[in-house]
Design a protein around this nucleic acid. Structure first.
Lengths: 230, 230
DNA sequence: GAGGAGTGATTGTCAGATAATCTTACCGAT
DNA sequence: ATCGGTAAGATTATCTGACAATCACTCCTC
């Protein structure tokens, strides 16, 4: 009788590979042992090692190139977000929570954005250029793309990488509702964005916060037909 | 010369499996074709299918049970966070950005927390119980654990699932510096937490925000020995 | 009718082999 | 002597076939 590996073999292997990287202080690009060496050192077949490495490669933790070997992967948030986004159709997050979370992130960065605008005029001109492109467009499709880009640029303007990553993640969940948002305020949105940048450039963070919060929360009214929560 | 399969076989397979789930509108728990069936329908060997499914399983998109088959997986944010957290040792995020991001998340939820405290006394008592345990402990190790739990409970008290998930993610990045934080204010931290709950219970969000911001930012002074940025 | 043994289906793991691709070193031509 | 190409070695990519482990279900027995 064996208390056996409740955890599957490949998970253990994946864990060991990760620990190997950590204990040896490997940096992205560094080489890992070959599949055969790993298999031998772990005392398992090469196939199990492969399944583990393939899974890790899928996550971007390692990279494998034919004829070269395994290397430690570079961070690749996009890849994670892509796969996570797949779940957006499956997981039911309360739409209102998504909006509230967005409010927290975007209004939270405003003080930092205002400060960086004061020190670097390029940031303001970048945002204003986006608004000009807003006013030029007539197509709904491009308008949506610009809207996404604007809000992302806002987060980027804070210089806080983690927040930008969180924003990307949130956005993926939002895609699910994108259709229901389209009928909403259009020109209204443009002017709101413009006012926001004006207020930020003037250093009026308090009013900018109110402006942005109203802008985002205006989505609440026209988003959830109903939420089917258990 | 062939422009041919730039993308590796298993990535194509993984993509096709994901599309299969989408086009057939499968919900978590629904069964997928067997590995053999997938292999045959894709015209490849079962092993390649396996590598794809194993990778997807690693991400939590599918689940496989011996003797049963493949089923569509349920969302598992913890799993993603676990693997993402691994990158924290590799990617060098500016410690100051981590702190700023924390400030945004935790102060951002305070209005929601205050509102929920007003409606549900259980939330306040939960936080106060944590503080009591703070005062009872003498060990640094448990103190750190409690500190983590307190800040997580704060985010949870907002009822915003996405923000809690982001907080978990941030926390993983923080682990790297945990050692350097330990010498910092100890009793000081307890009292700060206590004051925070008092202010929230009184509905004074503005002062609570200031209290929390100061508390978190106090870490800045004793965190970064140096950052080796390229 | 209920419970247990058996059977089939499916995944888990292994071994071995061949193809594709990259690195490196060697060798020849200029 | 230097440059370029080619061949050999190394390593991953993929396939074939097989056997073990586990689970669901049926059927048989009591």
């Amino acid at each position: 009788m064996k208390i056996v590996p409740r955890t599957k073999m490949r998970d253990q292997v994946a864990q060991q590979i990760k620990e190997y990287i950590l204990t040896n202080q490997l940096a992205p690009g560094d080489r890992l042992p070959t599949e055969s060496q790993l298999a031998e050192s772990f005392g398992i077949s090469r196939l199990s090692v492969r399944e583990a490495t393939k899974a890790l490669e899928f996550l971007g933790i390692v990279e494998s190139k034919t004829g070269v070997g395994l290397t430690v992967g570079r961070i690749d948030m996009d890849r994670i977000v892509e796969h996570l986004g797949f779940h957006s159709g499956l997981m039911d997050v309360d739409p209102e929570q998504l909006i509230d979370s967005r409010v927290i992130l975007e209004t939270g960065v405003l003080p930092y954005v205002a400060q960086r605008i004061a020190n670097d005029p390029m940031i303001e001109s970048g945002l204003r250029e986006l608004i000009d492109r807003f006013r030029a467009t007539r197509e709904l499709k491009t308008w949506i793309a610009l809207d996404i880009e604007f809000h992302r640029s806002l987060l980027e303007a804070s210089g806080l990488q983690p927040i930008v990553a969180f924003g990307d993640l949130l956005h993926v969940f939002f895609r699910r509702f994108r259709d229901s948002v389209k009928q909403g305020g259009w020109k209204q949105g443009i002017e709101s964005h413009a006012r926001l940048v004006d207020l930020l450039a003037a250093g009026n963070v308090a009013k900018a916060t109110i402006e942005l919060r109203n802008h985002i929360e205006s989505h609440k009214e026209r988003m959830p037909p109903r939420s089917r929560r258990s």
